[in-house]
């Protein structure tokens, strides 16, 4: 019962967040995409793998290279909402609980898009998210968050 109620709330939240995304997309017309180093050995990334990489479950990319997830401070809120349908406080609380275990650590936080691109371009294992409009030849897009979202809402 409780679980069902929770599910309904979650769905309501999802619908709400969809609106937010659509609003932001309407403003910027510029969705987030997942990018990796051209030699990372991965062409595309599915949602599960993305979640496992960003939430610390996987420490290596599917290709075997040690993963280096990067958080873009300005887009974190939108990214996690789109990826796992959670607000930042929940995400922060998630990492807070793991402070003492040392098993996993949160992605490295970077303030500027340019810096993100720089890191990804220089690390084969790096994986990050940026607005589609800023990408250049140094990185490859492995997933479109909007498409991932469609999968979620399609669920």
């Amino acid at each position: 019962m409780v679980r069902r109620l929770f599910l309904i709330l979650a769905l309501a939240g999802a619908v709400g967040s969809t609106n937010v995304v659509q609003e932001s997309m309407a403003q910027e017309d510029d969705g987030l995409v997942l990018i990796a180093h051209p030699e990372s050995g991965i062409k595309t990334l599915d949602r599960d793998t993305a979640v496992n990489l960003f939430m610390g479950r996987f420490t290596k990319l599917p290709s075997g290279i040690t993963a280096l997830p990067i958080d873009l401070e300005s887009a974190r809120d939108t990214f996690y909402l789109q990826l796992v349908n959670k607000r930042l406080p929940e995400i922060n609380s998630y990492w807070a609980r793991l402070v003492f275990s040392g098993r996993a650590s949160p992605p490295r936080k970077v303030d500027h898009v340019e810096e993100v691109l720089e890191i990804v371009a220089n690390n084969r294992g790096a994986i990050a998210y940026v607005p589609r409009s800023v990408i250049d030849g140094r990185v490859v897009v492995v997933a479109d968050l909007g498409a991932l979202m469609e999968k979620i809402t399609g669920l």
Binding site: M55, G56, R57, R97, L98, F100, S101, G102, R103, A104
Partner: peptide, 8 residues
Amino acid sequence: CFLRDQEL
């Protein structure tokens, strides 16, 4: 469980 975190 998600992280297979034995410590936790």
